[in-house]
Design a protein around this nucleic acid. Structure first.
Length: 564
RNA sequence: GUCAGGCUAGCUCAGUUGGAUAGAGCAACGGUCUUCUAAACCGUAGGUCAUGAGUUCGAAUCUCAUGCUUGACACCA
């Protein structure tokens, strides 16, 4: 914000000598808690010692010397110098920027078009998508949009869990208790049933686990029957996943899952051997990471089969080659922190300079009654059920609130899914939460539908006004009650950068709520469609709010319907 | 046991780089629709920022210790 710079400049000038550098002053300027304390403020505490004066006195003296021409007013309030910006001038500039740049407002080119690979969603084949996968999916999708808004080129990779011992187990279960007919009727649910039964029986019959491992080994060795079963399970599962992704309107640049790297494992082993990192321990091949204060990483099991780590190493090398990423992100639950630390450490140890570009983006887990979700134990919340419930409730809401609405079904989808997605993104990623349907599909208060509703009302006003062309309008608004909203609008470019810096979609979600709150307050207390000479300027504000809310929601992967 | 998170209103959470009186939403209570969509707005009430020490002009924020809690800790992912 160059208002800040402007203030730093007048302060530098007033302070004279080299007491504080311009940049130091700039860094000290803060935003007061409430707007009656001004728009920006400079605390004088740190000058007290050098100037040997009380902070209050320093503030008063500074105000005397400052060039106040470009501000509404500059006042000393205790130890602070408080700056009130010229609301009409600054406000008109912000609104003009938004109306001319439209959806590009807030976009920057910090990323210089660098490729960012994002490992996200990554559901396991033969298991239903649960609320847990929703997190990785929507966080990854929002981050992709945020990176893009900051000038990067995101590459969304769905690293499908289509390989691993669980397939061996599933094959054993299918061969013991399954039937082709049953699977065809309801693929995923049936496969899960087998999987759960396997784990129940494996508790009694320890040989089952060994058998599962053996079948997985057969699969890895290219056994015909194993391969055929695997492919069948995979195809059926993918079909179901795609319907959910369609509903969420999330797409991927790659579905290369774990199986894709089967033929790339040898390179990893070769590389680690050449670097002298691979050692044998208790019959298995491992990399020692004591140096990094991490447990050993297992690369090959005693039976020669590869592991999660081996495949992730292969995937990272492949991605570097294929995409030459500037950042390589993994949107994976926080419980896997150590795994990614290990992975990074291995690449560091192997002296790959891009090891530092690997970033784990952890998130908190979803529990039910405080307990972790688990397919094995059958404790699972199906994503499809939640989405269906949300859409149904949105539909009911529309019937009571706006029964004449056109496209009811479409809007119900946008609002219902919007509620679920927004709920998942509004809090800091790393927070865990206990699942409660009534929380997830709430439409009032700090929710997605609240933001959508704010936007819909803004659109409604613009419609009533006949959607006038506002590009050449004088956007000066003298009504001070519009100022809070305008100020928040002006903050959007900063917010976009902060969301990127912190890898936090919640920064955008919180911003959208703040903007909505400020706008709703303004809406409730001022009549926008009043016939006076500032009508068009006010419509410009409404339009700007609509643009920025739409763009915020878009980044989160949520629709902004024009009516609801 | 080791390592890593978390602890702020009854509940769910905000609180950029330490700064002014710690803020929202939900729940509770009260008010506002003949005027732009009441999925909204306004008000009341609600706090020893887990505890103790330290650094600082100043700590919810930084350091250390303690407690409680969650997760990870090689042949799963």
């Amino acid at each position: 914000m160059d208002n800040k710079q402007q203030i730093a400049d007048v302060l530098s000038q007033a302070l004279g000598d080299n007491i504080l550098s311009n940049i130091d002053i700039l860094n000290k300027i803060e935003v007061p808690k409430t707007s009656d304390l001004g728009d920006l403020a400079f605390p004088t505490f740190m000058l007290a010692k050098v100037m040997r004066k009380a902070p209050q006195q320093i503030a008063t003296d500074l105000v005397e010397k400052i060039d106040k021409n470009n501000f509404e007013k500059v006042v000393a309030m205790g130890p602070y110098v408080n700056f009130f910006l010229n609301k009409e001038k600054v406000g008109a500039q912000i609104l003009t920027d938004i109306l001319t740049q439209q959806a590009n407002y807030g976009t920057n080119n910090d990323g210089e078009n660098g490729n960012v690979t994002i490992d996200m969603s990554s559901p396991n084949i033969a298991k239903p998508m649960s609320m847990g996968h929703l997190r990785s999916t929507v966080i990854g999708n929002a981050l992709a949009n945020i990176f893009s808004k900051n000038g990067y080129n995101p590459i969304k990779i769905n690293h499908l869990g289509d390989w691993g011992t669980q397939f061996g187990k599933l094959m054993v279960a299918y061969k013991l208790w399954g039937s082709e007919e049953e699977v065809k009727k309801d693929p995923i649910n049936t496969l899960v049933k087998y999987y759960i039964r396997f784990h129940e029986e494996a508790k009694e019959n320890l040989a089952l686990d060994d058998e599962g491992r053996a079948w997985f080994k057969k699969l890895e060795d290219g056994d015909q029957e194993a391969t055929k079963l695997w492919k069948w399970f995979r195809d059926e599962s993918l079909k179901e996943f795609l319907t959910i992704y369609d509903e969420l309107e999330i797409n991927f640049d790659s579905f290369n899952g774990e199986a894709f790297y089967n033929d790339k494992m040898d390179q990893v082993v070769k590389m680690l051997t050449e670097k002298g990192l691979l050692v044998e321990s208790q019959g298995a091949q491992i990399v020692n990471l004591e140096k990094y204060n991490l447990p050993v990483a297992m690369i090959k099991r005693t039976d020669g089969a590869t592991l999660y780590m081996t495949r992730d190493l292969a995937a990272a090398m492949y991605r570097k080659n294929e995409y030459n990423f500037v950042k390589n992100l993994y949107v994976v639950g926080g419980e896997q922190r150590e795994h990614f630390q290990q992975m990074k450490a291995i690449f560091k140890e192997a002296s790959y300079d891009w090891a530092d570009d690997i970033e784990h983006i952890p998130f908190g887990l979803i529990t039910v009654n405080g307990k972790k979700l688990s397919t094995r134990s059958g404790r699972i919340i199906l994503l499809q059920d939640v989405l269906d419930d949300a859409i149904r409730l949105a539909r009911e809401q529309i019937e009571t609130k706006n029964p004449d609405l056109a496209n009811k079904e479409n809007v119900a989808k946008q609002v219902g899914i919007g509620a679920v997605v927004f709920h998942d993104l509004k809090n800091e990623r790393v927070n865990s939460f206990d699942f409660a349907l009534e929380e997830v599909v709430r439409f009032e208060g700090d929710t997605g539908p609240y933001v959508q509703y704010s936007h819909a009302r803004a659109q409604s006003i613009l419609r009533k006004a006949g959607n006038p062309d506002l590009t050449t309008t004088n956007l000066v608004i003298s009504d001070a009650s519009a100022w809070d909203t305008i100020k928040i609008l002006g903050d959007f470019p900063n917010i976009v950068r902060r969301a990127l810096r912190d890898r936090e979609p919640s920064v955008i979600a919180k911003y959208a709520l703040n903007l909505s709150r400020a706008y709703n307050k303004y809406y409730a207390n001022s009549r926008i469609l009043a016939e006076d000479n500032e009508l068009l300027a006010r419509l410009g504000l409404v339009k700007a709010v609509a643009i920025v809310l739409t763009e915020s929601l878009r980044m989160l992967g949520v629709h902004a319907p024009n009516e609801m």
